[in-house]
Nucleic acid binder design. Structure first.
Lengths: 114, 114
DNA sequence: CAAATATACATAGAACTACTATGTATATTC
DNA sequence: GAATATACATAGTAGTTCTATGTATATTTG
């Protein structure tokens, strides 16, 4: 299967990451893994892609971070959704659903014309 | 309803325009109107947005254009899907459906946790 | 035990893209 | 005749993305 186009990955990155964090707080590396698993390997965010997004979300106050120490002593930066972030997740979802509905309707028309 | 984010509009522009042309050949201004109607006004491509996209699609040979003269004597540039374009429409659709499915699965998980 | 890999976070800047701003032009409406 | 709609077009600015590269430590492998 061909790689997904960059613009589509970019457009879905925010809703996707917010959705992962809605399941529970998580840290960068684990978020990457969760998305890879959820997409059966179709999507794999590089760290250099993910951390700027997390930084931006934090700047928007959609998420908040906190350092924790893992069992092996490693430091991990955990992110969790804020109430603002939950609202934004809802907004991202509605936006996506809107565009998706428009596309599905158009494709339905295409199908009917075939 | 708030405006849709630019990145989502950008990511969906190609599949959307290809889908409009799958219904039948059309010209620029009419494509803009078709999308506006199909989206109940949520989406409104500016000409400065549309024509570079059409140009790019033509460069990819997904569409072909031809000048026709309208009833009032005005020249119109009609675009139609090529067989390559039909394949690309299918690819765009599959890509979108892939990402959409990933998001819907994640949102389903979110819903179950609420 | 050393090398390789995995884990974990981070940022600069080059490359790329989008779309606004602006343009030309003619038909129609007010 | 002015305003608006219709019709097509492009340059270049602004913004964005993500690659490349970095630091660092734990674990696995040979």
């Amino acid at each position: 299967m061909p790689d997904l186009p960059k613009d589509l990955i970019a457009a879905s990155s925010f809703p996707m990451i917010l959705a992962v964090l809605a399941k529970g707080e998580s840290y960068g590396y684990e978020i990457i893994k969760a998305i890879k698993e959820q997409s059966n390997g179709q999507l794999e965010f590089a760290e250099g892609t993910l951390y700027p997004i997390l930084k931006k979300m934090e700047a928007h106050q959609w998420i908040a971070s906190k350092w924790y120490k893992a069992e092996n002593g490693r430091e991990r930066k955990y992110y969790k959704l804020t109430s603002l972030g939950k609202k934004q997740l809802q907004t991202e979802k509605e936006n996506w659903q809107s565009v998706n509905q428009i596309l599905q309707n158009l494709w339905q028309l295409n199908f009917n014309y075939q």
